[in-house]
Computed example of a mutant assay.
Amino acid sequence: MMKAMIVAAGVTLAAAPVWAQELVAKMSPHDVATTMDRLENAVEAAGAEVFARVDHAAGAEQAEMELRPTQLLIFGNPKLGTPAMQDAQTVGLDLPMRVLVYADDQGAVHLTYEAPEKLVTAHGLPEDAGYIEKMTEALDNLTAKAIGEE
């Protein structure tokens, strides 16, 4: 039993760095709502479609619970997502793209999303798929606009 727990702990610890590499995290100088407004505007200006904006803190409030400001933007561009789904329809589990913006317990605002490279291993996509690079660049550019000083 102890050996199984040690093995399980080792697997958990070994997996932690991989999981951490799958997330891209940036800090924003703006509050959550402003960061999310800027992201939504950048997405729309780039010609992508915003499917939903989820205010998790408002949902918590409706359930008579507290949650620091936390919002999720769900968006995509079929010109990038469709080729990925043509290669592996299970990619539809991870698309459209999602970006989470939240305030931590110190009030610092974080912007976080899953790295598109994760799709390659999670769904068996070709490692040289051009759409992965385009998704990566798009997310980097859009989130940079969200947290920019201008």
Rank of each mutant, 00 (worst) to 15 (best):
23 L>A: 08
34 T>A: 14
14 A>W: 00
54 V>E: 04
80 L>H: 10
103 A>W: 03
81 G>C: 08
97 M>K: 13
97 M>T: 06
52 A>T: 03
84 A>L: 14
135 M>Y: 10
18 V>N: 01
63 A>N: 00
25 A>W: 04
90 T>N: 06
92 G>S: 10
40 E>W: 05
128 D>G: 07
137 E>S: 15
32 V>I: 04
129 A>Q: 14
48 A>Y: 07
95 L>Q: 13
141 N>R: 10
42 A>R: 05
68 R>G: 10
31 D>W: 05
81 G>P: 15
76 G>Q: 06
1 M>V: 12
58 A>D: 11
108 A>H: 14
141 N>C: 01
112 T>H: 13
59 G>K: 03
6 I>T: 06
80 L>G: 10
24 V>T: 09
115 A>I: 02
136 T>S: 12
130 G>V: 14
77 N>L: 04
73 L>V: 11
111 L>F: 08
34 T>N: 08
77 N>Y: 09
120 V>D: 02
77 N>C: 02
26 K>H: 14
40 E>S: 09
135 M>C: 09
127 E>I: 08
54 V>P: 02
68 R>E: 06
135 M>S: 13
145 K>E: 14
55 D>W: 01
14 A>T: 03
111 L>K: 07
20 A>L: 09
58 A>M: 05
130 G>R: 05
118 K>N: 09
81 G>E: 14
83 P>G: 04
22 E>Q: 09
49 E>A: 07
105 D>R: 15
23 L>Y: 12
78 P>I: 15
34 T>E: 15
132 I>V: 13
58 A>P: 01
62 Q>A: 08
11 V>Y: 05
70 T>K: 10
80 L>C: 05
131 Y>W: 15
20 A>N: 11
127 E>W: 03
73 L>G: 01
105 D>P: 00
83 P>D: 07
72 L>M: 11
117 E>W: 06
24 V>E: 05
148 G>V: 00
140 D>H: 11
17 P>F: 09
97 M>F: 10
68 R>F: 03
40 E>P: 04
136 T>A: 15
137 E>Y: 05
77 N>Q: 13
131 Y>L: 03
56 H>M: 09
44 E>A: 12
11 V>H: 01
74 I>Y: 09
132 I>M: 02
99 V>A: 08
86 Q>T: 15
73 L>F: 02
26 K>T: 12
37 D>R: 14
47 G>N: 02
84 A>M: 14
123 H>R: 10
3 K>N: 10
51 F>K: 09
107 G>V: 04
